[in-house]
């Protein structure tokens, strides 16, 4: 069976660190960074990128639309 691999790209400068993507992620891919972006928010980033399945749940709930999702079959 083909395995589905996903990957997300977060626009870290526009992220406001609301953490809604983190709690919406079904696989625990996303964590909040320990450092802040230019506006002083702890931005979201894919801490465990190998777990991502490209379901786009994070991108769906992101209020600021900063997440882009890529998905492929391996």
């Amino acid at each position: 069976m083909a395995k589905i691999k996903g990957s997300i790209v977060v626009n870290m400068e526009n992220c406001k660190g609301c953490e809604i993507c983190m709690v919406s992620c079904p696989t625990g891919t996303i964590s909040m960074a320990k450092e802040v972006n230019g506006k002083g928010y702890y931005y979201a980033y894919p801490a465990n990128p190998d777990l991502c399945i490209g379901c786009a749940s994070c991108a769906m709930v992101c209020p600021d639309g900063v997440i882009t999702v890529y998905k492929t079959k391996i």
């Binding site: 786009a56 900063v66 882009t68 492929t72």
Partner: peptide, 8 residues
């Protein structure tokens, strides 16, 4: 680009 699943 060909693997794009979702973007704003």
């Amino acid at each position: 680009p060909e693997n794009l699943a979702y973007r704003k």
